[in-house]
């Protein structure tokens, strides 16, 4: 009798286990979409607030999920300002005063370079797989698109800001459409829209990310990738304070 129930329970559990594994694999895919083993990208970030609109062009390098370096090229006022991320640490290099400052953990929720992205996004975005339990919550057609909806809930011990992240992904090319970020009370805080898909080698990458905060209507941050190349030779040495202090940053 009890053996039968155990079998039944196992039978009921199996599909959800398989789905969970699928969701994790999908999130790993999304995590690595813009990254590859190493990557180099040029992009423009346009920040629109009700007070000003600012476009910044920058170069970004990354290696794995733990190393990245972003240098601002335009506008002239901020030229050369660089952000280095090594594991959980963020440093800023300020060429005008020729100093490197570390962003303390208390400032992780603060805005990154005046955008609607936080410093935390820079550090934590890559760790969807590590910090969240993801589940496929919908699979099928929505608004004429065949999508998979994945809901990610932070693991109990994960130090993350969000209470829930919901993402929709195209069934065919596995590129993301949208992501909704909720706080712990379940209130929608911000929406991230991915578009301008482009085929890059083996994957489809959205070349534009538009972030709109829910509480500030009319404001947004849009990141547009101009070009992105993967698997170029980049040492971990490149992602160091030494590179920052050298001023001219080239691998």
């Amino acid at each position: 009798m009890s053996a039968f129930f155990r079998y039944l329970a196992l039978l009921m559990l199996l599909p959800s286990l398989a789905l969970a594994r699928d969701a994790d694999a999908l999130m790993r895919h999304i995590d690595g979409l813009w990254r590859g083993k190493t990557s180099q990208a040029t992009m423009t970030m346009t920040v629109t607030t009700r007070r000003y609109e600012r476009a910044m062009t920058m170069q970004a390098w990354s290696r794995g999920k733990h190393y990245s370096l972003i240098v601002i090229e335009q506008p002239v006022k901020d030229k050369g300002v660089a952000t280095l991320k090594v594991e959980q640490n963020i440093w800023n290099y300020l060429p005008k005063i020729n100093r490197v400052t570390k962003v303390p953990s208390s400032m992780m929720a603060g805005s990154w370079m005046g955008s609607h992205f936080t410093n935390d996004d820079l550090v934590k975005e890559s760790t969807f797989e590590d910090d969240y339990d993801s589940q496929i919550t919908f699979e099928g057609e929505r608004d004429g698109q065949a999508i998979i909806e994945i809901t990610s809930i932070p693991k109990p011990d994960a130090a993350v800001v969000w209470g829930k992240v919901v993402m929709t992904i195209d069934q065919q090319v596995l590129a993301p459409y949208r992501a909704w970020y909720y706080d712990e009370e379940g209130t929608l805080i911000r929406t991230l829209v991915f578009d301008q898909w482009q085929q890059q080698e083996d994957r489809t990458i959205p070349m534009r990310l538009s972030l709109t905060p829910q509480d500030k209507p009319g404001e947004s941050t849009v990141i547009t990738y101009h070009d992105i190349v993967f698997d170029i030779p980049l040492d971990t040495d490149f992602f160091s304070l030494k590179t920052l202090k050298r001023g001219r940053i080239t691998p």
């Binding site: 000003y52 300020l94 005008k96 005063i97 100093r99 005046g114």
Partner: peptide, 14 residues
């Protein structure tokens, strides 16, 4: 070293 976000959106530092 003080780093802020200046009123015009640039990175104020001094």
């Amino acid at each position: 070293v003080l780093v802020t976000q200046a009123a015009d959106g640039s990175i104020g530092n001094a």
